[in-house]
Write a protein that binds this DNA or RNA. Structure first.
Lengths: 154, 154
DNA sequence: TGTATTTGACTATCTTCGATACGAATAAGA
DNA sequence: TCTTATTCGTATCGAAGATAGTCAAATACA
């Protein structure tokens, strides 16, 4: 930082400020950087309720549904059933959801009262987060954001 | 952000076809899904040259520069130095880059001839990928995509 | 009805990515 | 010289995602 640093900084070295990241014009690269930055931020916010992004997503998804199985949740969120098991397991251990037998093979994953209370906090956190995210996007681009993203995976 | 006044949403029926993901209107969620989908796709494409996305990014970044240290690369790509070490190590092992002493402490990471040849393949792959990505976005949203994303992290 | 296939939940294990914590060597400053 | 900074690197951890495969229940069908 200090201009007296021993860094050679010879004439051939591009100035740190004058040389923009040449990758920043690549849509895929900016998509990755933006998603990483936003998910890191959301993760920090959600640490307040000791939940990870994927866990919070599950709570948001199953709210108001009482017959969603773990495999249906996995299909909706694109999480393999092998990865759903420990995910649901942790939520069960924490008393946020419970498994209710549907037919002897399938289990419905439903919110407990504690889960509903936590979900309330999750909604508060995510709504603030989503609002802030949109606010950072210049107004003229804002309405194009979600439709453009949805075209990439839906 | 939920549009409570919008569509009746078919009531309580969890119809397999008619039940859209209620999270799909959340900007942060769509950002994550789109980025995951795109990076998985790019990863598949780059497996042709046996490189991961982060490794290809490094090659693209250091091309034409001969005094970039591993810490400068890490700063540019937002990769911790602890994670840079094995990343560079693998590229060195594969003969794509080499470490050149700058001043006895710092090492410049530069492309080898093999690295330049591989970079040529990487450019071909990523250019096709980036073009395809943009093509998937409806034309009226396309020009807003990169500016909106850049507002989130730059 | 009886057999075969599919499905749902789960375990174990592997890979990638990112983050800390720490150690060694060099450079810079008191 | 001694101390502090920085740089590079190690070891290790955690989250997320993927494969392979077990087991039992549900379903399809001859």
């Amino acid at each position: 930082m200090a201009d007296t640093s021993g860094k050679p900084d010879s004439g051939s070295l591009p100035a740190p400020d004058g040389e923009p990241d040449p990758l920043a014009i690549l849509p895929g690269y900016t998509l990755r950087r933006a998603a990483n930055a936003m998910m890191a931020e959301l993760g920090t916010l959600l640490s307040e309720v000791d939940l990870r992004v994927s866990e919070a997503s599950i709570l948001l998804l199953i709210d108001g549904r009482d017959t969603m199985t773990s495999s249906q949740i996995g299909t909706a969120l694109d999480i393999r059933s092998a990865n759903m098991a420990p995910l649901i397991g942790r939520l069960v251990t924490r008393g946020l959801v419970e498994r209710v037998p549907l037919d002897g093979k399938s289990m419905a994953i439903i919110l407990t009262p504690d889960g509903e209370a936590t979900l309330h906090e999750v909604r508060r956190i995510t709504q603030t987060f989503e609002q802030d995210l949109l606010q950072r996007i210049p107004a003229e681009h804002r309405d194009h954001f979600v439709p453009a993203l949805n075209a990439l995976w839906r």
